[in-house]
């Protein structure tokens, strides 16, 4: 297998919730390899979002190390984490998090303006099949379309990592499949290392590799011999 882009070793994360400590992650080892499509599955509360936040530079581990290539993210300060997200990570969230005051094209441009060598917003939107909706505002788009704009925004900077947290969580089945197809296509055409987090087990069929998280620990890790195309996935 190729080289690890992102690597976490013995990562723990403890939150203090009022009077009690919540151990969200308890010693997780994890790697994401070059151009890989990985699905991280787990029930709610299993720690998958916490892990993704740490991998994406939104949070720091309580102990353990996280490396993006040679950079130690677990020791990075706020400014360095911002820089890491800005240069290398594309995010897709459950609730899209688009700027309501900007059109589809402008939401993508928001990211391309602060990137080196990005795709043009039109190219990125074409990749997600929204070339005909460039000048629509989020309030004029369906949920699935909004999520595709979010994917276009995530990939426009040609990130090395694409991190998707429950990308279909707020969508109906049909829209969800379209969004997964788009993510699949980006992974294949741009070779972006992609991690999709979901509690929806069937989605793991489209991955190269599946990591199952349970109660803050990696319960299982497996490689799919054959990947099911997004269009064939049912739930």
């Amino acid at each position: 297998m190729s080289q690890a882009v992102l690597e976490a070793r013995d990562v723990t994360r403890t939150y203090r919730m009022g009077e009690v400590d919540v151990h969200a992650l308890r010693g997780v080892d994890f790697a994401l390899y070059e151009s890989e499509f990985l699905v991280l599955v787990g029930a709610s509360g299993s720690g998958k979002s916490t892990l993704m936040n740490i991998l994406g530079g939104l949070d720091r581990p309580t102990s353990g190390t996280v490396h993006f290539r040679d950079q130690d993210l677990s020791r990075a300060n706020d400014r360095q984490l911002t820089e890491f997200r800005r240069r290398h990570v594309g995010f897709v969230f459950q609730f899209y998090n688009l700027m309501p005051s900007l059109t589809a094209r402008e939401n993508v441009a928001l990211v391309t303006e602060i990137s080196r060598d990005p795709l043009s917003p039109a190219e990125a939107l074409e990749m997600v099949g929204l070339e005909h909706r460039l000048d629509h505002f989020p309030s004029q788009l369906s949920g699935g379309e909004q999520q595709r704009v979010a994917v276009a925004r995530a990939i426009a900077k040609r990130p090395e990592l694409l991190l998707c947290d429950e990308p279909t969580g707020a969508l109906d089945y049909r829209s969800g499949v379209v969004v997964l197809e788009v993510i699949e296509r980006v992974n294949q055409e741009l070779g972006t290392s992609t991690a999709v987090i979901t509690h929806n087990a069937p989605i793991s069929e489209m991955a190269n590799r599946v990591v199952v998280l349970h109660d803050g620990q990696v319960e299982e890790e497996r490689t799919n011999e054959t990947r099911t195309p997004a269009s064939d996935i049912r739930w």
Binding site: G56, L58, R79, T82, E83, R85, R86, R87, V89, F91, F93, N97, L98, M99, P100, L110, V111, I114, R153
Partner: peptide
Amino acid sequence: ARDLASLRVLGFTRGE
């Protein structure tokens, strides 16, 4: 707050 936090996640700095 939500929009601004989203921008921070996308890599916008505090200053921006």
